[in-house]
Amino acid sequence: MSWFRRKRESARRPVEHVDLDSLLALVAESLGYTFAFARDGSSMSLKAAPGTSPEGAAELAVRLTGLRREAGRRAREDWPMLVSEHLAHAVAGSGDPVDACDLDQARPLMRTRVESVDEVPDLTRVVGRHLNADLVELLTVGSRAVRPEEAGCWPVATVQALDLAVDNVRREERLGVERIELSGTPVTRLTGASPSAATHLRWLDDYLAVPADGALVALPDPYTLLLHPVDGIGVVRAIERLRVHAARTGGLSSQVYWWHEERLRLIKSDIVTQSGQTRLVVAPPPEFAKVLARLAV
């Protein structure tokens, strides 16, 4: 009778879950594991097949709630890759004392870091939000980015999880403040011990007096912010100095940004060499162009 009962339980489950379980079973076996699913489908246990691991090796529990949610958002042709990555990651991290799928364990270690969009191989495989078109703020646990199927296990929405990480950054670290000059132009350098410096833009007033028109920002690396207040026409020279410095460092971004009204806008500028002379060609966003016009009067 137990066989018929299992058949009835399988028939009551969504067909998508049944198909995903079939993939999970195939991948588990290909990795050399025997497996068993929890009755509610929320997890599966893996155990190395006989002869492939030390006697008495502990079973590995793999949470599936987040994986099922992520699979529901993806095309079916993505499922084999999704399942393979999920199980391979679970096996590789079996010795990690922190289960990133458990919010209680992950919460104290949650942080954010900013990356160039071009440096993230696949934005669909990380959890984050765009600061602008070319920079993304990633959610991390420890030193690595959180994957969607891990965050999908948590009883909070992604935006709430990111806010928890931001709160951790503010509580755990204060950036160092230093006044420096770039070819005669004074700027403020903020530095931190973790790659979360850009997260502190939200509390810029804690570090320097920010005028109503905001501040110029350069991000030479994830640990550093270079800032100059937008408080006079001297800001034009500051854009040039920051842009040249950022290009030389070759770090997080070679561009200069405008932090204003809780937004980070790109001030696109190109270093052009023509007839042996180098000059900066700036294409500011319309709102910043209006500020420059007003400051020039």
Score class of each variant (00 low, 15 high):
122 D>T: 06
120 V>N: 01
43 S>M: 11
153 C>P: 01
219 L>Y: 00
242 L>D: 13
291 V>L: 11
24 L>I: 11
250 G>C: 05
132 N>S: 02
294 R>M: 00
107 R>Y: 10
45 S>A: 14
95 G>V: 09
150 E>Q: 13
52 T>P: 07
155 P>G: 03
58 A>M: 09
41 G>A: 10
282 V>E: 15
92 A>Y: 12
149 E>A: 13
99 D>S: 14
122 D>L: 10
278 T>Q: 13
256 V>P: 00
269 S>P: 09
178 E>R: 14
128 G>N: 12
166 V>K: 01
9 E>W: 08
98 V>N: 03
58 A>R: 12
271 I>N: 07
128 G>A: 04
226 L>S: 06
249 T>Q: 13
136 V>D: 01
107 R>S: 06
21 D>S: 06
249 T>S: 12
167 D>Q: 14
163 D>S: 11
265 R>I: 01
23 L>P: 05
55 E>I: 04
138 L>H: 08
83 V>A: 00
218 A>E: 11
23 L>I: 03
256 V>F: 02
5 R>D: 13
109 L>C: 02
188 T>K: 09
228 H>K: 11
191 T>N: 13
134 D>T: 11
277 Q>A: 14
4 F>E: 13
227 L>Y: 12
12 R>M: 15
127 V>R: 08
112 T>F: 02
222 P>K: 14
74 R>L: 05
37 F>I: 06
52 T>H: 10
136 V>G: 01
268 K>Q: 03
150 E>W: 06
35 F>M: 10
149 E>Y: 14
137 E>V: 13
75 A>S: 07
98 V>F: 13
70 E>Q: 12
292 L>S: 04
276 G>A: 06
150 E>G: 10
156 V>K: 12
5 R>E: 05
72 G>E: 08
82 L>A: 02
68 R>K: 15
242 L>I: 08
169 V>N: 07
265 R>W: 02
228 H>G: 00
200 H>C: 09
235 V>W: 04
30 S>E: 14
145 A>D: 13
231 D>R: 14
265 R>Q: 06
208 L>K: 02
106 A>M: 08
55 E>Y: 08
49 A>P: 03
223 Y>I: 08
87 L>S: 03
116 S>N: 15
124 T>I: 02
228 H>M: 02
111 R>H: 09
4 F>G: 00
241 R>K: 14
28 A>L: 07
16 E>F: 09
210 V>S: 15
251 G>K: 01
227 L>T: 15
243 R>V: 04
